[in-house]
Design a binder for these strands. Structure first.
Lengths: 211, 211
DNA sequence: CGGCTCTTTGCCTCTGGGGCAAATTTCTTG
DNA sequence: CAAGAAATTTGCCCCAGAGGCAAAGAGCCG
């Protein structure tokens, strides 16, 4: 891109140096933490050490195949290498605004864009409660068991979770939860409503354009 | 790669057609679900419609900058486009010990499925850790203190959270966290990535498919 | 200092990203 | 059904840049 061969006015592009610089750093970090030499690492991915050096110094940027190869070689994901908000060493940097979450009660609160929201609740499910039929809607759900044990049914599979375990699933999957211990179960529940970029919710049920 | 100019025996490379085919499909899927035309979408990312078409039909593969641009434009992450949902039919993640992270002494443990819009981690922040400069990005974050106490700075305000407290805020707010107790602090972290451009495509009197 | 290993840099080649414009297909309408 | 308009695909071309090789730096140790 940048400048087109024919002399294009060039469109808005530019590889967030931020992003790329990070990539370079991360690549080196990964290699070093594995105590590999450029030569060895390069061989692993099928590259020349010289080129790998350039990648790590940010003077070149890998093509997709190479990027994938690197990710695989280092046992990470591409997004990991790119520092895309994911479980990665450096990215673990966020903080939060305080919320008057009262102990024992709920720590529920909504913030930011009203459109798409993430909601978090602390729930206590008493023992006797029968399966809760849960609505299926687009989005994701995540939960973490704080106390007691939980029986989680996802689709046709039943999972058993104890303290410290967590689950992450698509809300479209039919799901229901129930306590699996005498004293019931206490858990943190976070869910989002969003997904699908354009979202078709705006086009009413209409068949939208006959085809 | 492939074959070296000088005549290299060629290293092991090959873009998992699997992966690339998926990318193409996903690109199209995203664009269509946003009801955008090649032309519009291409303009958005700064590409020519023709090229975008090629990407969506898998006859070309995007360079890194382009890939990033596309991900941003469609409100997804690169890993999303690459379908890095990673083998994970099992949505349940067991507790287990937190691994001592390398970067800055942070320790974290993924507590949810990777490659989704919502990410969950269990993090351990050691006591001495200095404030971490945090990047601001669109999305929401939520955290819950499992053990220890936390000092978090949100914008210019400093908050103090103890076990059981939680916080929920917009990721755009400059924020950073630090342990506020001897033994550091352990917390659950959940965050989402949102698409930047508000969904203005389908609301209001938009020409949405007349007919 | 002279060798040894690891990393960076100069230089060169050729692949393939990517634009433009024409061709083709698809949906509308008169 | 043909004329038109809009959207997608394809032919063609060009050059930026991926990526290899080999030589030039850096550290290290005896």
């Amino acid at each position: 891109m940048t400048t087109s061969p024919t002399g294009t006015p060039a469109a808005g592009e530019q590889l967030d140096d931020q992003e790329v610089a990070g990539l370079a750093a991360r690549l080196r970090e990964h290699r070093l933490s594995s105590r590999l030499t450029l030569e060895v690492a390069a061989a692993r991915v099928g590259l020349s050490p010289a080129y790998l050096s350039r990648l790590e110094t940010g003077r070149r940027q890998p093509s997709l195949p190479v990027l994938l190869g690197l990710a695989r070689a280092y046992g990470t994901s591409v997004s990991g290498l790119l520092g895309e908000t994911m479980a990665e060493p450096d990215p673990v940097v966020r903080g939060g605004a305080i919320e008057p979450g009262r102990a024992g009660g709920w720590g529920y609160r909504r913030a930011g864009a009203p459109g798409r929201a993430m909601q978090a609740l602390r729930v206590h499910v008493p023992p006797g409660v029968q399966d809760t039929v849960v609505r299926v809607h687009p989005g994701e759900e995540w939960l973490y068991v704080l106390r007691g044990s939980l029986r989680l049914t996802l689709g046709d599979r039943v999972h058993h979770l104890d303290v410290g375990d967590s689950a992450h699933f698509d809300s479209l999957t039919p799901h229901c939860i129930a306590a699996d211990s005498e004293a019931g179960v206490e858990l943190l529940f976070v869910h989002t409503l969003l997904q699908s970029p354009g979202g078709e919710l705006c086009l009413g049920g209409g068949p939208a354009a006959t085809h």
